[in-house]
């Protein structure tokens, strides 16, 4: 599998994603500078976390006009797998590959901690190695993760099984205390209707090795690899 990790000015999780794909997953991965205009031979695009363009104007608002974005939109429209993590999720919302928008966290603070999320949909190219209701221990690190969509969009998300991850307590209950940023309906990650584009605020690349305290995140990368291998056979 050929992975392309996009580096924007201000990305800071690009090398982590590259490391996971290259050194843990043992796949071919390369960093793609945002000024490039072609993805070439890529099977998975990762938009990494960080602070692209210093979060100026709105998170992800300026990165969405980077030269590489046109080829990512094209790639996604043909079913190509696109994973946006944290700032990558914010960019996917701004560019319209996923519906909704991000607001400031309800308590305004930048939150950097491990949280529990549960898998709502295990039937996507990104989550087939999980089971529904599986609870993951995974870090978040953001100030704008308070997902918002209007009520029509929210119903559509539910109807099409597009809500992939939700914040929950350690035993899987959806409580206000376990929703770290005030996100609508506890949403931590959503996919598009064709399920080839996933955006999530938690960082699977930061929970992909035992030394980091959790290996729950590696299952997401394993899922993508599994999807790729099936499509090749």
């Amino acid at each position: 599998m050929n992975v392309g990790v996009i580096s924007f000015p201000g990305s800071n999780c690009d090398r982590d994603c590259h490391f996971v794909c290259n050194d843990i997953l043992k796949q071919s991965s390369r960093l793609i500078w945002h000024q490039e205009t072609s993805l070439k031979n890529i099977d998975l695009v990762i938009l990494p976390g960080g602070f692209s363009y210093g979060d100026y104007l709105r998170t992800g608002a300026i990165a969405r006009f980077s030269p590489i974005m046109d080829s990512i939109i094209e790639f996604a429209s043909h079913g190509g797998l696109v994973l946006g993590i944290c700032n990558g999720f914010q960019i996917l919302l701004e560019v319209g590959l996923l519906p909704g928008a991000m607001l400031r966290n309800t308590h305004l603070s930048f939150i950097c901690e491990n949280v529990s999320i549960k898998v709502e949909n295990a039937d996507t190219p990104f989550t087939n190695q999980f089971s529904v209701d599986q609870i993951l221990n995974i870090p978040i690190a953001h100030a704008e993760g308070n997902y918002y969509a209007d009520s029509t969009t929210l119903s559509t998300l539910h109807e099409h099984g597009q809500i992939v991850f939700r914040y929950c307590s350690g035993n899987g209950t959806l409580t206000n205390e376990s929703n770290p940023n005030g996100s609508l309906d506890h949403i931590a990650g959503i996919c598009n209707q064709t399920r080839n584009v996933l955006g999530m605020m938690p960082h699977p690349e930061r929970s992909a090795e035992a030394v980091l305290g959790s290996t729950d995140g590696i299952l997401l990368f394993n899922s993508v690899l599994n999807t790729f291998e099936k499509s090749e056979s």
């Binding site: 104007l57 709105r58 608002a61 300026i62 006009f65 919302l93 701004e94 519906p99 909704g100 928008a101 607001l103 918002y148 969509a149 209007d150």
Partner: peptide, 8 residues
């Protein structure tokens, strides 16, 4: 296009 996000 850029200065406002029509969703919010």
């Amino acid at each position: 296009k850029l200065l406002a996000n029509p969703v919010i």
